[in-house]
C-alpha cells in the first residue's frame, strides 16, 4: 500500500523570521506516514499544533523545515487538483445564510467553475451521490439553520465528497454533537472510507471521536508522542500529551486507559448496542485513584 501523506521532519513556527531563534515552535520535527485507505486520528490538546498540521497539509501554511507530500505532490498542488476534501468544525458556519443542504453541497462541487459555467450534469450527479453516501437525501432541501448538528455535519461531509477527493481531512468533526451522534458519525465515516476507498485524517482533542473512528492514532503536542492503534495508547502517553490541558483542571492526575476486551468492570464500555464499542476507556482522576 502506498503512502497518501508523508511528513518528513516538518517544523513550523508562527514567530516572525527575525524572532524565530529560541522561540517555541508550533510543530517540532514531525515525521509521519499516512497510508492510502487508512483512517488516522491526530489527537492532542488545544494549542498542541493539530490545526497547524492540518493547515500545512492543505497548503494554507508553508513549513519552515522539512517536507510534506500528498499523493506525491505538494499540498498546494493536491488541493488545487481537488484531491483533498476538507470538513471544518460545523460551529463556524453562518447558519443564517439562506442556503439549503443541497445548495451547500453544490457550492462545494462548483466552486472552481468559471462564473458563466453552470453546474454540469456530472457535477449534479456527484452532488446527488455525495448526499446519498452520507444519508442526507431526506433533509437535503432543508434550510441549514433548521438542521440538527448531526445533519449539518453530514452536509459538510457531502460537500467535501462532492469533488471526489482521495483524502478527507476533518477538523474537530464532533464538536457540539451529542454522544449518540458521535457514535453515528464514527460508523458513517467507517462506511464512507470503505465505500469510497478514502484516506481519512481526523484532528480532534476528543479521544472518544478518535478511538471510535480511526485505525491508528498519532498523539501530537508540538511533537509526535506516539502513533499507534487506539488500543495501544498507554496511560503514560496520554498523560504526557494532555498534561497541560488536564493538569490545569484536575491538578495532579492519574490516567487509566484500557481496552474493552480486557476490562473486567461491567459498567465500562456499555451503551453501544450496535456492537461498536468504544475500544478504549480513559479515566482521568485526581490524586492517583482511577
Amino acid at each position: 500500500m502506498s503512502d497518501a501523506i508523508v511528513y518528513d521532519n516538518v517544523s513550523y513556527s508562527y514567530a516572525p523570521r527575525t524572532a524565530r531563534a529560541g522561540a517555541p515552535r508550533a510543530l517540532e520535527r514531525i515525521s509521519l506516514k499516512v497510508r492510502e485507505g487508512e483512517r488516522l486520528g491526530i489527537l492532542g490538546p488545544n494549542g498542541g499544533g493539530k490545526s497547524t498540521l492540518l493547515k500545512l497539509t492543505l497548503g494554507l501554511l508553508s513549513q519552515q523545515e522539512g517536507t510534506i507530500s500528498v499523493f506525491g505532490q505538494s499540498p498546494t498542488q493536491a488541493r488545487d487538483k481537488r484531491l483533498i476534501g476538507y470538513v471544518p468544525q460545523r460551529v463556524d458556519a453562518e447558519l443564517a445564510f439562506p442556503l439549503s443542504g443541497r445548495q451547500v453541497v453544490q457550492l462545494g462541487a462548483a466552486i472552481a467553475n468559471k462564473p458563466w459555467q453552470r453546474l454540469s450534469l456530472e457535477q449534479r450527479e456527484d452532488v446527488h451521490e455525495a448526499l446519498v453516501t452520507v444519508g442526507a437525501q431526506a433533509f437535503a432541501e432543508k434550510h441549514v439553520g433548521a438542521m440538527s448538528g448531526g445533519q449539518l455535519q453530514r452536509i459538510l461531509i457531502a460537500r467535501a465528497l462532492a469533488s471526489k477527493p482521495k483524502l478527507l481531512l476533518l477538523d474537530e468533526p464532533t464538536v457540539g454533537i451529542d454522544p449518540a451522534g458521535q457514535q453515528q458519525f464514527a460508523s458513517l465515516l467507517k462506511q464512507i472510507a470503505a465505500e469510497k476507498q478514502l484516506t481519512v485524517v481526523i484532528v480532534s482533542h476528543d479521544l472518544r471521536t478518535i478511538a471510535a473512528g480511526c485505525d491508528r492514532v498519532a498523539c501530537l503536542s508540538r511533537t509526535l508522542h506516539a502513533h499507534t492503534a487506539p488500543e495501544g495508547l498507554t496511560p503514560a502517553v496520554l498523560a504526557e500529551v494532555f498534561k497541560h490541558d488536564v493538569a490545569a483542571i484536575f491538578g495532579e492526575l492519574h490516567v487509566d486507559a484500557h481496552k474493552a476486551s480486557a476490562c473486567t468492570d461491567p459498567t465500562h464500555h456499555h451503551g453501544h448496542g450496535d456492537g461498536s464499542h468504544a475500544p478504549v476507556t480513559i479515566t482521568v482522576s485526581k490524586g492517583g485513584s482511577s
Partner: peptide, 23 residues
Amino acid sequence: LWMTRRSLIFWAFDESASPAFGV
C-alpha cells in the same frame, strides 16, 4: 456580484473553511 457569486456565498456561509476550497 454575479461573477464572484459562488466564492462570495461560500465565504459568507463558511468563512473559516473557504481557504481550503480556494476562496
